[in-house]
Nucleic acid binder design. Structure first.
Length: 454
RNA sequence: GGCGACGAUGCCAAGUGGUCUAAGGCGCAGGUCUGCAAAACCUCUAUUCGGCGGUUCGAAUCCGCCCGUCGCCUCCA
């Protein structure tokens, strides 16, 4: 398959180094609930992983938690809890939400706070190799020592300084030098180190963790576009300086950002829709179709109208799975649709086109079913390919009521069936419309009356 | 200021030199089916791709300029 590589700016044929694909996806800093932007990014990388697995690769997927940082400390103080507790709570929420979204679990979820010795080891080695220097308890990375600094984000030190928004930190040799180890201030969580008590800076944890769990060369490193600079730039600088090996990452994959009206959705702008709220309102399939309906590198704008439209689209796909006719000699052949799907996915994960193929297949199945053609094989194909996009074709079960109300609803339906048989349509229609008001939708089919919650 | 992206039908959104009178989804309208609905299916909904020039036998697709919107350069998926 072709994948767009941020560092070269081109589509490249994806070939992993070994027989297993090493994929590292930047995780969250767990100081606040996840929002739709996170969901979008992780759904995209979930689809990339599922597609690679579909193609027969084994994927070693690692996703970190940066569970110590300024924001966590600050938020914990505001809430009067300790930082670990706050982080733990949001990590748990994250895992629950990802499960609800049908995002496959990474093999390992390392946490910054649990890799401190390794982080210290990497920093020490960078100092030894003169890629880093300590100043009063802080340690900085020396960007001027790294010849190709800026290669990922395609910028130069001069260009960045011209931006004039860089902070000339006390003790920094160069304004762009960034911190590897932060000396502890009073009341902050800290660990002992050769440079005094402190904690890791942002970026270094990913270097330490990816080296630890995947080795010196990653096949794929992913994250949002907003991580390219400074996070991934710094990460690659550190990693390659530490190992002496290039490239640290063979394919850099970045997704476009979710916009909220005019701006991007982000914690700092406070214009977010929490994933939890969205999951309460829309099915996981609908959310996924919404994200995958535009190409992963394009920005996508959140909208209620868009989501409700996608919910109806998801419902259509579900309906295709309701009935079936056994495959026979003149059955619907799903192969052309499968080929279209694969071709789309091979072309830098073109999920909008892949989805288009699935919707066309869905229509053909409905059509064939009406004309009595066999469709069970085609349905299996649809389910399997949809599965590559992480679609379940299930409507989420309403929490409690479903089971309890079922016998009563079934009873009403059977009475209504009798009324209809007796041609008492007024009464029958009344049952249907009263149930509708209660959120239960009836549908009369040749096989009997089906019902579902709205 | 530097780097980059985008501008398409009522809305969302693929396509990046001819097969495009532009995929797919949602919506709208008409029809089939149905006791009526619902679901499903059929038909319909951009001769046109921000504007102006240019390259080419040929451009939504390449180049230039202009207008508009956005992202990164600072914490961020």
């Amino acid at each position: 398959m072709k994948l767009y590589n941020t560092i070269t700016g081109r589509d490249e044929e994806f070939v992993p180094v070994g027989d297993k694909v090493k994929m590292y996806v930047c995780g969250i800093t767990p100081y606040a609930p996840c929002h739709m932007g996170h969901a979008m990014s992780y759904v995209i990388f979930d689809v990339l992983r599922r597609y690679l697995e579909f193609q027969g690769y084994e994927v070693e997927h690692v996703q970190n938690f940066t569970d110590v940082d300024d924001k966590i400390i600050q938020r914990a103080q505001e809430e009067g809890v300790c930082p670990q507790e706050l982080a733990e709570r949001h990590i748990q929420e994250f895992m629950d939400s990802m499960g609800a979204l049908n995002v496959k679990s990474a093999g390992v979820y390392p946490r910054a706070t649990q890799e401190i010795p390794h982080i210290i080891e990497v920093i020490s080695s960078l100092i030894e190799k003169e890629y880093a220097y300590a100043v009063e308890g802080d340690v900085y990375f020396r960007v001027t020592k790294d010849r190709d600094y800026g290669k990922l984000s395609h910028r130069t030190l001069e260009g960045m300084i011209a931006g004039a928004r860089v902070e000339v930190g006390a003790g920094k040799e160069h304004p762009m030098d960034f911190v590897l180890w932060k000396a502890a201030k009073k009341g902050e969580p800290s660990w002992e180190s050769p440079w005094g008590p402190g904690r890791p800076g942002w970026h270094i944890e990913c270097t330490a963790m990816s080296l630890m769990y995947l080795g010196e060369t990653l096949d794929i490193h992913g994250g949002g576009l907003d991580l390219i600079f400074p996070h991934h730039e710094n990460e690659t600088a550190q990693s390659e300086s530490y190992t002496g090996k290039t490239p640290f990452v063979r394919y850099w994959v970045h997704n476009g950002l979710l916009q909220m009206g005019e701006d991007k959705m982000s914690k700092s702008l406070g214009n977010l829709v929490s994933l939890e709220d969205a999951l309460n309102q829309y099915s996981p399939d609908a959310l996924r179709i919404f994200f995958l309906g535009s190409h992963y590198r394009s920005p996508l704008t959140y909208s209620e109208e868009g989501l409700s439209a996608t919910e109806r689209a998801a419902e259509r796909l579900r309906n295709v799975m309701r009935g079936s006719t056994e495959s026979s000699a003149d059955s619907l052949d799903p192969l052309p649709y499968k080929q279209r799907f694969l071709q789309a996915m091979d072309s830098d994960l073109n999920t909008p086109q892949a989805l288009a193929a699935l919707f066309d297949l869905a229509r053909e199945i409905n059509r064939a079913m009406e004309s009595g053609q066999g469709v069970s094989q085609a349905q299996k194909t649809l389910e399997k390919l949809g599965g590559v996009l992480g679609l379940t074709f299930h409507r989420p079960q309403k929490k409690s009521a479903e089971g309890e109300a079922k016998p009563f609803i079934d009873l009403l339906i059977s009475m209504r069936t009798d009324l209809r048989a007796a041609r008492q349509y007024d009464m029958a229609d009344q049952v249907r419309s009263r149930l509708d008001e209660l959120g239960v939708v009836l549908e009369d089919t040749p096989q009997g009356t089906l019902w579902k919650y709205k």
